[in-house]
Design a protein around this nucleic acid. Structure first.
Length: 268
DNA sequence: CTAATTCCCTGGAAGC
DNA sequence: TGCTTCCAGGGAATTA
């Protein structure tokens, strides 16, 4: 499933192929994903100037506005010859002469949107917190946010208003690495421990991007063997198994409708 | 404002 | 082998 590193990897993958290209058409094979897919006939003849990213949104800057793509949970993007046959869940594509940017999304949690305004002021984006890998996401900032919140720390770091791009997997793993219990009230964690958590969040995201956005959960290599990351998971998806650090049986708890695995011994 | 809950969707796994 | 049931998950929308 695409987390922030996978979206960034997608951006880096498609940008060289589509930047500077002229759009010759677009195809929507589904009426909607998360929201209706807009009519984009006016895009014909427009040039793609830049492919950027904000949180998990991909922003494709064109002449008169910006195409906003979200991969949801199961979305993936590929650049293919435009005459290659579309597969079952290929719901949308941008055609640029001989090539096409194709969005596949079996679970339809993704999105295709258009804005003629600055995307930063779009209603889906304007309220978002800082990027985790930008200088504004500091340990001091994270600590100040936690001081305002009585909610569980895991829910706070997964809150997009606090910081974007920390999904269930990275939240679960970074809390384990920091020795912090996921259900602990955010405001009751010392500054030193929040600094530790901040460090682990940044490290794990950087590392995942360096690895080419290897999807933690679903990724399989061409030969079907699991991705490296899967073998490196400490707690995510391992409830009932032994903690790799202390041998205790890992437990899990529902927090905000999300399964949260943890080690009762290592995390307090 | 925060916090809790519901909902969207389908593939894959588990149970029968 | 097939059917049915359950679960995962980002995040907006809704409600308290």
């Amino acid at each position: 499933m695409p987390e922030l590193p996978e979206v960034e990897t997608s951006r880096r993958g498609i940008a060289p192929h589509i930047t500077g290209q002229t759009i010759t058409g677009s195809i929507a094979r589904a009426p909607k994903l998360r929201w209706p897919i807009p009519k984009l006939d006016f895009l014909k003849g427009q040039t793609i100037h830049k492919v950027s990213r904000r949180a998990k949104y991909l922003l494709i800057r064109c002449d008169t506005g910006t195409l906003i793509l979200h991969l949801g949970m199961s979305g993936s993007l590929r650049v293919l010859p435009s005459n290659s046959p579309a597969a079952k869940h290929d719901h949308f594509e941008l055609v640029m002469g001989d090539i096409a940017l194709r969005l596949r999304d079996p679970r339809k949690f993704g999105a295709v949107l258009w804005t003629s305004e600055d995307p930063a002021s779009h209603s889906l984006i304007s309220h978002l917190g800082p990027e985790p890998l930008n200088s504004e996401f500091t340990a001091d900032y994270l600590f100040s946010q936690t001081q305002k919140r009585t909610a569980a720390i895991k829910q706070v770091i997964m809150d997009n208003k606090v910081v974007v791009g920390v999904g269930n997997i990275y939240a679960t793993e970074s809390l384990f690495l920091s020795g912090i219990h996921p259900a602990r009230a955010a405001k009751r964690i010392s500054k030193a421990r929040i600094e530790e958590l901040h460090r682990h969040i940044v490290e794990i995201l950087r590392y995942a991007i360096k690895r080419g956005g290897t999807t933690l959960r679903d990724f399989q290599q061409q030969d079907g063997s699991p991705g490296y990351f899967q073998q490196e998971l400490w707690v995510y998806g391992r409830s009932g198994e032994a903690c790799k650090s202390c041998g205790s049986t890992l437990k899990h708890k529902l927090l905000g409708q999300r399964t949260s695995a943890y080690c009762p011994q290592c995390q307090r």
